[in-house]
Design a protein around this nucleic acid. Structure first.
Lengths: 146, 146
DNA sequence: ACGATATAATTGAAAGTGCAACTATTGCAG
DNA sequence: CTGCAATAGTTGCACTTTCAATTATATCGT
């Protein structure tokens, strides 16, 4: 019945899941307390800020932030009504659109970052040794390469 | 503007997030393809199976699987209509109720496990060395101790 | 150039989630 | 014991997410 998954592996998976849940929950709580938007919004803002000219085609954005298309559509609706991004029609491909970061979007990301960074540190990385940080980073990158 | 969060830390956080999302997404997809319930259901079934007599008070269960009360209420509704658990009134405390695993619940967990285990291995632990498993486990446990 | 197929993004309906309010019961202070 | 706060669980409501279907446009094979 039990496939050959070593106990140490399922046990690692369990703490991995729990760590993710508790850490993000705490960070979300901190953001909400400061009357700031949730992590998903940060993700969009940050991703756009990285992109050349602060703009990305919607499907590129969807892929980068690991979100389904329809999900992204409505997430961007919310961000757009909040004035943090705007949509621009794509000149070459008339099916498509760009999501473009606004000034307010940049400002919001900057406003969120201190809280986010504080959370990452307080709830996660502050408890790790430099070696652990290196090992985990390497390991998880390798996992993602597949 | 940027608090003193080292680049290596935010970068670790980023891969951590991405790893979580992609891995769970893939596992969910595999389960859905096999016409099996989602991971949250597995979590409840597994947690109950660990518990003495396969039963837990709802608030204990909620705490163990890191879910809000209201969320749990409705998750259990679904599991109950599927016949995988049932509720029993608590004799001592008339406010309370137990969630109790049924035979069908046990069977379902066993049916899900091979797919789940396969996913954990294929998408996660198979790419890790034994040392990495140990280091990550230790590190994440420490993170959760707080 | 034509039609079949693929891709981009949106939409409607359904399911899931979170917050705050609510009911019922228990336990504790005085 | 009485009343007030705390706890257990559910419910209503608003919001978010997902799935499948839809619209519009582009691309490929012949």
């Amino acid at each position: 019945m039990t496939p050959n998954l070593h106990e140490s592996h399922s046990s690692l998976w369990r703490v991995f899941l729990t760590a993710y849940t508790t850490i993000t929950e705490k960070i979300e709580r901190d953001l909400a307390t400061a009357d700031l938007p949730p992590l998903t919004w940060y993700d969009v803002l940050w991703t756009l800020e990285q992109a050349p000219e602060h703009r990305l085609r919607l499907h590129e954005l969807a892929e980068k932030i690991l979100l389904s298309r329809s999900n992204l559509t409505r997430l961007l609706d919310r961000l757009e009504t909040a004035g943090l991004i705007c949509r621009e029609r794509c000149p070459n491909d008339r099916r498509g659109a760009y999501a473009v970061l606004t000034e307010a979007g940049i400002a919001m990301r900057q406003r969120m970052w201190p809280f986010y960074a504080e959370g990452i540190s307080k709830y996660f990385t502050a408890h790790l040794s430099p070696e652990e940080v290196t090992v985990m980073h390497q390991a998880l990158e390798r996992v993602l390469k597949v």
